[in-house]
Simulated scan of single mutants.
Amino acid sequence: MEKSLKQNASSLRSHKKVKSEQGIPGFFWEGGSALFKKQGQKLLLGLALLMIGLGLVGVKAVFDQWSYLQVNQVVLTGNLHEADPELIKKTVVGGRLMNLVNLPMDSLIEEVKQLPWVRNVEIRRLWPNSLEVNVLEQVPVARWGDDQLLNNSGEVFDGDTENQLPWFEGSQRDASQMLMEYERFTDALRPLQLSITHLKLSDRQAWTMELSNGLTVILGRTHPEALLRQWVMAYPQVIIGPVQKGERVDLRYANGLALYKE
Rank of each mutant, 00 (worst) to 15 (best):
G58C: 08
W117Q: 14
W117H: 14
V139T: 09
L150S: 02
P85I: 05
E122S: 11
I88M: 03
L115S: 09
L103V: 02
F63Y: 13
F63D: 14
D147W: 10
R125C: 02
D146E: 14
L149A: 03
H81A: 09
L97T: 14
E137C: 03
R143Q: 11
G78P: 00
L126W: 12
L103D: 04
W144K: 03
G78W: 02
K90T: 10
S130L: 05
T77E: 08
E111P: 12
D146G: 08
K90G: 07
V133W: 02
N99K: 01
Q148K: 10
V74E: 00
L80P: 06
V92R: 00
V121S: 00
A61C: 12
V75M: 04
R125K: 07
R119D: 05
H81I: 07
T77W: 00
E137L: 04
L108H: 07
L69P: 03
N72I: 10
R119F: 07
V74N: 00
P104F: 05
G58E: 10
R96T: 09
R119E: 09
S107L: 15
N79M: 08
L76F: 01
L80G: 05
A83N: 02
D84Q: 05
L136T: 09
Q138H: 10
W127D: 05
V59P: 13
N134H: 11
G95W: 04
Q70R: 15
S67C: 07
V135W: 00
D146Q: 13
L126A: 15
V92A: 01
L136S: 14
D146P: 02
L136P: 06
L97A: 06
M98T: 07
L115V: 14
D147K: 11
I123W: 01
N134F: 12
P85H: 02
A83R: 01
R119Y: 13
H81Y: 09
V139Y: 09
L108A: 10
W66K: 10
G145P: 00
W117A: 11
V139L: 05
V93F: 04
V112P: 03
L150K: 02
L69N: 10
H81D: 12
N102Q: 08
R124T: 15
Q148W: 10
V57G: 13
D84L: 04
G58Y: 15
N79E: 07
V133A: 03
S107A: 11
V75K: 04
L149G: 01
Q65A: 14
G78Q: 01
I88R: 00
W66R: 08
L150C: 05
V59E: 15
L80M: 12
L150H: 03
D84Y: 06
A142S: 02
P140A: 09
L115I: 11
D84A: 07
A142T: 03
W66V: 06
T77V: 05
N129Q: 15
T77N: 04
S130Q: 10
M105V: 12
L126V: 14
V101L: 15
V57L: 15
I123Q: 02
P140G: 03
V71P: 00
I88N: 02
V62I: 10
V74K: 02
S130C: 05
G94L: 00
V59A: 15
P128L: 04
M98L: 14
L80R: 08
K113N: 14
L56T: 11
V92G: 01
M98A: 07
E137H: 04
S130Y: 01
